[in-house]
Every structure is written in C-alpha cells, then in structure tokens.
C-alpha cells in the first residue's frame, strides 16, 4: 500500500527517483481558491467603475454593493492566503521583501486595496438614518480630490491583485509550464471575465438590463483567455517538464477537469452564451448572461487549480542523455 499524498513531504525531490519529472505538491486547492477570489474582487472593482455599474447598482447599508463584493472577496482571499502559511501569525513579514519578491508586491497591493477601497466607500455607510462617516470629506463617487486619489490607488492595487498570482508562478524557471507570460495573461483574462459576469448578475438582481457592451466584454475577455490557453498548450510542446504538463492536462489525469470543465464548460461555453445573449432581449438575455457566472467561476477555479497541479519539475539531468551515455 502506498502512502496517501497528504502524508508525503511537500518536497517532491525527496522521492527516491529524482531523475523523473516530478509534480509539485506545495501549492493546491487553497492557492487556487485565493487566486480565484482575488481575481474576482480586483476585476469587480475595476470593471464596475469602467462600466458605470458601481454607482448605479444597488447598495447595502448605503455602500455600493459592487464595492462591497469586491472588498469581501479580496478579504476572504487574503484570509485563505494567510491561513495557508506555515506561520500565519507572522504574515506581516510578507511585506518586507518588496524589493525582489512579487508576493510582497501582492501583499502590499492587497493591503492598499483593502485600505483605500474600504475607505473610499466608508462615508456612504448608513445605519438607519445615521451616516457616521459622512463628514470624512470624500464619497464613493470620488468627486473630491482626495476621493480621486483613493480611487486611483485602489484601482492600481486591484490590477496588481489580479496579476500577481500569475506572475509569481511565471517568474522562476523551475517549472517550465508556469514559466510563461501566458500564465499571468490567463489569470488576468479569467479574472476580468469572472468579474464581468459577477457584475452582470448584480445588474440583473438590481432589476437593470444587461447591456450589449457588458456581454461583448464578457465574451471578448473569455475569448482572450481561450486564445492564451490554446497558444500556451501549443508552444514549446517538447520542452522537458512542459511536455509532461501538457500531456497531463490534455490526455492525462487532469483531462476531465481541465479540458472538459475549465476549457470546455468554463471558457468556450460562456463565449457561446455571451454571443447568443446578444441576439435576445429582456428575460432570455438576462438568463443567458447570468448563466455565464457559475461557468466562468468554476472554470476559473479549475483553470488555476489544474495549472498548479500540472506544475512539473523536469529531471535535474536529462534521462535521455544519461541513457545514451
């Protein structure tokens, strides 16, 4: 009987035969979870402002519901990240190495976003007839100078929050499948597509109409995601490590969750639904638009999880050359 994976050390090089390709065991479900939540949160904040949904959609306790959704998803993502650390109580140290570490940039971006994104909407907080923070000198519309500064800072932070997870994977050369600009582009496109679908749901729940531009944005962003996935799967296909990753994703154990679920149901189908919805008005358009959300979110999560699970280190020396020696 072999030991369950959870019982094995996370360092896969401790397995006996280190000259075989090895699958990383360090990052998994928790990381895919916070990658997904932070992607949605950053995208909702940004696209909500760009598409003028934030200030037109409904409010909860006086706060724009779009900003609340964004704030809460990023906060939950951050909590998952912290809980996954080996020493969660030392999480503050993640801010220290901003000179070289992308994770440190991300930690700062999370903090900046939660601070300024939170402060920006705070004056609108309403309890009954009371608005205890209304005298702060700005509002969630960012009409004042200080409000605009907060909005800019929160928006920049939202972009970093969406991008940095992919950049963390793409930077080192250790895992060839990850070491590509395609990974951060995939994560960004997926984040924006999930966010757009979330915003369409908010619009529908608020009794509004889903616009043509919102549908086109969802379909377009998802199409960018699809193109980057296809390009990434079809380039450098024989590179050691990446070859094994692609095989696992397209023909191996991850075929079902990646090819059928993340790509088929989570990427191709939302494009079809989004384009199909353009041909309808009223209820049918809204149903089709809202249907893209669960598909994109589940697909986005599986995309991230399978990207992590397909992280394979090539052998430290080439077995082929060794065999021919």
């Amino acid at each position: 009987m072999s030991a369950p994976v959870s019982a094995l050390p996370q360092n896969v090089f401790m397995d006996r035969w280190a000259l075989e390709p090895k699958t990383q065991r360090v990052w998994g479900v928790n990381h895919a979870g916070w990658f997904t939540l932070m992607g949605i949160g950053g995208g909702v904040f940004l696209l909500g402002r760009i598409f003028d949904i934030t200030l037109e959609a409904g409010r909860v306790l006086g706060l724009p519901i779009v900003d609340v959704v964004s704030f809460v998803t990023i906060a939950i993502g951050g909590l998952i990240l912290i809980a996954d650390l080996g020493r969660p109580l030392q999480a503050w140290r993640a801010f220290r190495n901003v000179r070289v570490s992308i994770i440190s940039w991300g930690a700062w971006a999370d903090l900046v976003f939660l601070t300024f994104g939170g402060l920006l909407m705070l004056p609108d907080l309403t309890f009954g007839d009371s608005t205890p923070f209304s005298g702060l000198g700005w509002d969630s519309h960012a009409t004042s100078g200080i409000g605009r500064v907060m909005l800019v800072l929160a928006s920049i932070a939202a972009v970093v929050v969406m991008v940095y997870a992919g950049a963390v994977l793409a930077r080192p050369r250790s895992i060839p499948y990850w070491h590509s600009v395609a990974i951060p582009i995939q994560f960004l496109a997926s984040s924006l597509a999930m966010a757009m679908a979330t915003l369409m749901l908010i619009v529908v729940l608020d009794g509004g109409d889903v616009t043509r531009s919102e549908l086109l944005a969802t379909a377009g962003l998802t199409a960018v995601l699809l193109v980057t996935i296809v390009v990434h799967l079809s380039t450098r296909t024989t590179a050691p490590g990446k070859k094994e990753s692609i095989e696992r994703l397209t023909r191996g154990s991850l075929r079902g969750t990646f090819l059928y679920a993340a790509v088929g149901a989570g990427t191709v189908l939302p494009i079809v639904l989004g384009l199909l919805a353009l041909g309808f008005d009223g209820g049918a358009r809204e149903v089709l638009a809202v249907l893209t959300l669960p598909l994109l979110v589940v697909g986005g999560f599986l995309l991230r999880l399978d990207t992590l699970r397909a992280g394979i280190y090539p052998p430290v020396v080439s077995l082929l050359e060794a065999a021919q020696r």
Partner: peptide
C-alpha cells in the same frame, strides 16, 4: 526565525533544495 512558510521558494527552486518542517 523570519520565514513565514509561504513556500514560494520551494516551488521556485529547480533542485528541491528547500524543505518545509511540517
């Protein structure tokens, strides 16, 4: 003393030289 257990180093190292005390 400074490590927080983010384990990014473990995925970044191509040689498997870093070990988490689990």
């Amino acid at each position: 003393e400074i490590c927080i257990g983010a384990r990014a180093c473990m995925t970044a190292c191509p040689y498997g030289a870093l070990h988490l005390h689990e």
